[in-house]
Write a protein that binds this DNA or RNA. Sequence first.
DNA 1: ACGTCCATGCAGTGACGCTACAACGACGGT
DNA 2: ACCGTCGTTGTAGCGTCACTGCATGGACGT
Lengths: 308, 308
Amino acid sequence: MDVRALETLRAVRSQGGVTAAAAVLHLTPSAVSQQLAALARDAGVPLTERVGRGLRLTAAGDALADAAVDVAVALERARAACAAWAGSPTGSVRVSAFQSAARLLLPVLLTRVAAIGGIAVECADEDVAQDAFAALTDRHDVVVAHRPAEGDPGWGEGVVAVPLLREPLDVAVPVSSALAGRAALEPGDLAGVDWIAVKEGFPVARVLADVAARSGATPRVVQRINDFHVVEALVAAGHGVALLPRYSSGGHPGVRLVPLTGVRAGRQVDALVRPDVAQRRVVAVVLEELAAVADGIRRAPAPTGTPG
Amino acid sequence: MDVRALETLRAVRSQGGVTAAAAVLHLTPSAVSQQLAALARDAGVPLTERVGRGLRLTAAGDALADAAVDVAVALERARAACAAWAGSPTGSVRVSAFQSAARLLLPVLLTRVAAIGGIAVECADEDVAQDAFAALTDRHDVVVAHRPAEGDPGWGEGVVAVPLLREPLDVAVPVSSALAGRAALEPGDLAGVDWIAVKEGFPVARVLADVAARSGATPRVVQRINDFHVVEALVAAGHGVALLPRYSSGGHPGVRLVPLTGVRAGRQVDALVRPDVAQRRVVAVVLEELAAVADGIRRAPAPTGTPG
DNA sequence: ACGTCCATGCAGTGACGCTACAACGACGGT
DNA sequence: ACCGTCGTTGTAGCGTCACTGCATGGACGT
């Protein structure tokens, strides 16, 4: 029973198909398919079943994929056992973050990690739909993701989440608006306004629905934009208001962030890691530094809009 | 990092050398040496160091070997995960036992396992020195071993022991002897007698020393014989007395087993299994049956000397 | 009904590990 | 102190196995 085949099975499950799994494993779909066939022959039971033009893991395949992560964890622990004698942690860690978190966290993270020495952090920015974050852990060691602060984490099964930051969602209004003068806003104050929301299915889209529900009506969404800079530009131009995270936005001079009261609105920022890569000493160090960076922001928020 | 190399490292540690490890792995010493070299190169630290004309694992190698068993356990658990869907446990299990336990346990074990169906038990008899039993688990799935009942188990690190039977040690005396009429014997009664003991370093050799210490003198050992049938023949011929386990001996008409009081003398029979093979469903079944057989003997001892 | 996408089978090729053989080093007996 | 022996380590040759590339079959959407 080959560990590479087990890893492949796990990738097929998390990626949802042979082709996608082949991509993250840097293989051809043919190789993946052959590995699955060999594994099923070795196991004695079918591990996958065709569904439509794709495939799905059977119950046995699912159980084996679960066991595969345990194998990967044990293997990584073995590597860590040698690394403990090999000296201080060294290597490269691939970190991915969605745009606003990348802007907020990565600069400080890179500085801190550089101070340690010997660790190379390869950054990337990826913002995907809520349920696609877990799959990113196949391509990156650490994935900074976000979700509505209320409710359970809801990341997939085979992924560990390290909480980084709880960020309140404020209401972004044009400075020229009457609402800009208020110290705080309640859901009732926002009935009938035009909203600029994020794309369907993306993180914190659900929060707007919750807030609007308190105001009694469904929100009138006039635009769906994911990039906060674009959102701020639209808000400043008077095209609507938006829910924006306090620490990651507010840089635009024509926009004012007004706290929202009467309803718990926030987003939770987590670092997602696969349990096996979490065993790597370097990854653990980078995770610690990332948590420290987030902690520093929580203590002394430095909105990008505040000069100096 | 190859799991086969990890398994090889573990075998080198338990067997104490490259050549011996190669034998149990069905490889040439050259292949083992190459695997160790590749593993050390991959780990970045030396895993072995020359000592005399053999070699020994370094601290890093020892830690990696420990991690290797975790990997093996995880892998075996993965196999078990499929086997759960594949149907009832099937396969072959290699069982080894020292002679007297083999005679006592294996016939019933084979009958019981045959009744289940689908499981092939490959038996072997191996009796080795006390500290060599653990290494046998590299060649057999289940190793039935024995040790003095008092004191801690003392089997190696990477092996799990399932207790099977605690067997009292009686004093085997010739039926013609004056001692044969006694209902019980105390250490003091045995001062000055000739002893027939087992070979140096073999199980329960220590017990005789303990008993003799109670009688105040060092025992006079006139013969060292491991096979109980030979021992009984010598005892019957009046060449000395011996400590023999109650359930596994006493078949000779010229020998009487007299209970020993005033001192706790017994041997403990354990089943030894490597933690990874313990994950195999078939092995677990055979272990259960083995424990049941031993339990049956404990409830209704059937000394081989009792006819019918 | 056609095009597209996805998974799968098959032949070719490249790399990797094992066997066989030779050499070096170390221990123990004489 | 020497030499025989045992055990480990290097090197060449070979076999095996897994991956790439291409062709096929099936399923969904237009």
